[in-house]
Design a protein around this nucleic acid. Structure first.
Length: 265
DNA sequence: ATGGTTGTGTTACAA
């Protein structure tokens, strides 16, 4: 079984104790991180490598930043989302590891919706759609996971009417997420668990965690070849309950063994 | 209570 997790850590340096204890406890094979908020030379590589992980990272000062951790060798790294060479924000990294192609994505937040921030979000999602469609034709075991900053439906937010105008719940945002699903991607968690009350993010303000005022905005999207292998998925709420937590908590999947032979053994 | 919290990196901005 191969475990792949995604986690927006909101600064890898501020979160390092939480990350190290979680890697010990959960021992995921592959981890897709977002909001590392650090340039590559200041990334705490040694502490993570000491736990047995290889690292691919795309850093940026203060904002954004994505990374891939893997217990296996990391190959063929892609450091940008194709489609706009003028985009300098570190929101995408992709690599091949343990017979899986994985991408860590940090979709722009997009608030407030009446500004160019929202236009940038929609354009970024359009780029992701175009690229993801091309990748599907390669028929790989492909997992595109991260902080999508998309609450796919009213089931995924504690107060749908209160968030109706927010960039995370906006119809244009949801439309683009649906386009990804309609291309053939599977929202891994939703494939296994229906109904309300499953969240991956709780705002720091207003005691949102204690009241369970959450949103499900961190997702693992699977190509058909990856969906065939899906064994389980879950949201690990433990890290969110600890001291100095990220406002997001890890979401994970388990994939069945990838057989190189169709005969299997 | 016209607010609340966290992180970066200088005191404003992003989430």
């Amino acid at each position: 079984m191969l475990t792949i997790a995604t986690w927006n850590v909101n600064s890898i340096r501020a979160r390092l104790p939480r990350i190290i204890e979680w890697l010990h406890e959960a021992s995921p094979d592959i981890v897709l991180l977002q909001e590392t908020k650090v340039i590559n030379e200041n990334f705490p590589s040694e502490e993570i490598e000491d736990l047995g992980y290889n690292i691919a990272k795309k850093g940026q000062k203060s904002y954004n930043g994505v990374a891939i951790l893997s217990k296996f060798s990391i190959e063929d790294v892609v450091y940008n989302l194709p489609g706009d060479q003028s985009d300098e924000q570190a929101r995408y990294i992709e690599a091949f590891t343990k017979n899986v192609r994985v991408a860590s994505v940090y979709v722009p937040n997009g608030n407030p919706t009446l500004t160019d921030k929202f236009d940038y979000k929609l354009a970024w999602m359009d780029r992701l759609i175009k690229y993801a469609k091309e990748k599907l034709s390669q028929e790989d075991v492909l997992v595109i996971a991260g902080d999508y900053n998309v609450c796919p439906s009213s089931l995924d937010v504690y107060d749908p009417s209160g968030w109706v105008d927010d960039a995370l719940c906006h119809p244009e945002t949801r439309k683009r997420f649906r386009t990804l699903l309609n291309l053939g991607f599977t929202d891994a968690f939703r494939a296994l668990y229906s109904g309300p009350g499953f969240y991956s993010f709780w705002d720091y303000t207003g005691g949102a965690w204690q009241k369970d005022f959450g949103l499900r905005i961190d997702h693992l999207l699977l190509s058909p070849e990856a969906a065939d292998l899906l064994n389980d998925s879950g949201i690990d709420k433990n890290p969110r309950a600890k001291e100095k937590p990220s406002d997001h908590t890890p979401v994970w999947i388990q994939l069945k063994q990838i057989c190189s032979s169709s005969l299997g053994t």
